[in-house]
Amino acid sequence: MASILISDDSSSMRQMLCYTLTEARHEVQEASNGSKALELAKQHRFDLVITDINMPALDGLGLVRALRNLPDYQFKPILLLTTETDPEVKKEAKTAGATGWISKPFDPDKLLAAVRKVLG
């Protein structure tokens, strides 16, 4: 069981993530944009952060950069949710410090596999 922070401005996407992860016995907290996620991340020490790229207030890449500057999150896995198949975006994500990415749309098993891959 891990504590996971998910950040996405779409509430159906959040619900879907939340449902899947909770079913897999993870503890989940949600944020509807990057800056809210950052606030939450400062208050708790999550084992994993999953974030959308396109969000208001602070976007996914900005969130990753900000998290990497926090001592608590220097080595924590951060996964980006993305619909882009563009390798440029992936490169940018890596440069920002993301651990990996999950392509939307995903099925629950794919999501859990990705989570397992970073949490062990």
């Binding site: 396109n54 619909t83 749309p105």
Partner: peptide, 19 residues
């Protein structure tokens, strides 16, 4: 334009889940 983009982007993402 970012906000507009996000709307379309989210709809695309969501629609993907339901095919």
């Amino acid at each position: 334009i970012n906000s507009i983009f996000r709307v379309v982007h989210s709809i695309k993402g969501g629609a993907g889940i339901f095919k």
